[in-house]
Structure formats: C-alpha cells, structure tokens
Amino acid sequence: MLTTQQLEGIKQLQQQCEQFDTIELKLNLDMLHERKDDTLDFFVWQENELIAYLALYGFGTSVEVCGMVQPDARRQGHFTRLWQVAQEVIAHKGFQKVLFNAPGVSESAKGWLSGQPCKYSFSEFHMVWSAKELDELTDIALRDATIEDKDFETALDADAFSLSSEDAESYYNERLSRQKERRYIIEVNGSAIGKIRVTRSYGESYLSGFAVLPAYRGKGYGGQALQTIVKTEIPTGNSIKLDVETKNDHALKLYERIGFIQQQRQDYYEVHLNARVEG
C-alpha cells in the first residue's frame, strides 16, 4: 500500500509535469490508492520532493508502464534507472507483454522512447462527454453485476478485448477489490447482452469495459446503454470520460453521436522482455 507521502508526491509531480508539458498523464490514481502490492512503484526523491516516478499496472499476463520526471530533473538518467529496476520486477512476476504508455504530444516521452528498444503498438483517444440532449430510452435496462455474472463478464472480456480466458479471469478477480468501481450488466428483455464499468473518483466518472455480445451489436443497444450510464452520472457533477482506440472507427462514431469529444491521445509502445535498455 502506498503511503500518504508517496501519493501526495505523485500528485504534485503529476501536476508539475502536466502544466509544464501541457499534457495529460494516464496514472490511474484510483488504482494507486488501492494498491496492495508495494513492488509496483518506483521513486526518486530529492530532499523529500519526488522528482521521478515509474508505475507498473498489471493486467493478467500484460503490464503497462507509465511514469514522469520533474522538468528540471530530466536528462539525468533517473527514468532509465527506474526502468532498469522495474524490468527485474516484471521478469520476476512473469509478465509476458510490456506496454509503455505516453501522452501523444509529449516531446520528452518521445525523446526517451526513441532511444529504447521498443516499437509503436497503438493509440487511444481520451474522450469527455459534453452536455448534449439524450434520447428517451426503453429497450435496455441496467442492473448491478453480481458474482453470478462472472462467467458472462469474463467470456465477454475475452471476446471483445482479445484476451485469453486466463487473462480475462485474472483481470476480473483483480478488479473485484476496487471499491470505487461499479459494474453493470446490460439487459434486453431480461437477458444479459453486455456490460460496462463506472469508476467515480477525483471529480470524474470513468467508463470502461464496455462490451456487447456479437449477436446484439449494430442494433442500437450499445448506444442506449451508454446514454443510460451518462444520465446516471450527470447528477454527480463529475466529468464523464472514457478511452477508445483510435483505429476503432465504429466506437468513435458511437461515442461522438452521444456527445463525447476527443481530448489528448495516448500512445502505447511494446518492448520485448529480453531487450536490454540503453541510457
């Protein structure tokens, strides 16, 4: 579990980097607050001030890497040293796929990545809902997911997000402990046809894990479910956000019709586990 000092240091460093670079970092602060494994975070402190940080986020056999360095402390090798230590943890935990996550407009991230043995994999748009009149909906219903829905949720995750059955189950089990996350099952005429998750934290309602069974896609049910979720979250006063892969034209158009607008892009780079990092 991260300490109060560590969490405050991460928030302050994030603010410094985002303001200096005009970027948005994907640090998943809600996940950091619920960390139970203290081997996934790596720090460089200078006189009680956090100047460099790297975090690992495990998803089944895959792990995402995100980090930042104080503007005045860059080009001193801090992030490279953190990454060298992090690789030992990655190997020890047996992760098979490693993805670096970096804001698409971050010149400092691009500069560091250009010297590393990694290759571009894909990009996501961060999207936020802008106030728009929504439809009156009657065809679908939402209910809270229960443990009895595990098989349905894991099978749908495996199909929709190209996961192995083992990874889908591991991901499901890991998320059960997230206290700020609410899981919904989408139903039509009493039958489960899809799912979606909502995490409320830090003035945001973040939507994730949205998927519909293949037989029910293209029939408008997904759009109705998203609008229903948006209507549920509007009274909280939170900004309503989600991420979508930039190549997913169908999903992009669906989100835009409902009122979501594109913000910054996040780029993902894959690195081979047996690669040696220079720098």
Rank of each mutant, 00 (worst) to 15 (best):
F210Y: 09
P103S: 01
E136Y: 00
L252G: 07
K110V: 00
S108E: 06
L134W: 00
V85Q: 15
Y202A: 14
Y268K: 05
W129C: 06
E245N: 13
M31W: 08
F210N: 09
F100Q: 09
A131N: 13
D167E: 08
P71Q: 08
M31G: 07
E204W: 00
Q227G: 14
F125L: 14
G194V: 02
F79E: 12
Y184K: 14
Q19Y: 01
L242V: 02
R178V: 10
A251F: 08
E245F: 08
G60D: 07
N274D: 11
W45A: 09
F79S: 02
V69D: 03
E187V: 02
D249E: 10
N189D: 13
V277H: 11
A160Y: 01
R182E: 15
T228N: 08
D30G: 08
F42H: 12
T39W: 07
Y120R: 10
L2V: 01
L156Y: 04
K180P: 05
W45T: 12
D151G: 01
P103Q: 02
E233T: 00
Q5G: 07
S239L: 07
G259S: 01
A141C: 13
G194P: 15
L32I: 02
Y216R: 09
L273Q: 12
H33I: 01
E107V: 03
Y221H: 10
Y221E: 14
V44W: 07
V69M: 02
P235V: 00
S123Y: 07
F161E: 06
V271F: 01
T3H: 01
L25H: 01
F152N: 05
K119M: 11
Y216F: 07
L163E: 08
A215C: 14
S177A: 13
D135K: 14
G94Y: 14
V277F: 11
L226R: 00
T199D: 09
V198L: 06
E169L: 14
A225K: 00
H126G: 13
E270F: 00
R175K: 10
L13M: 05
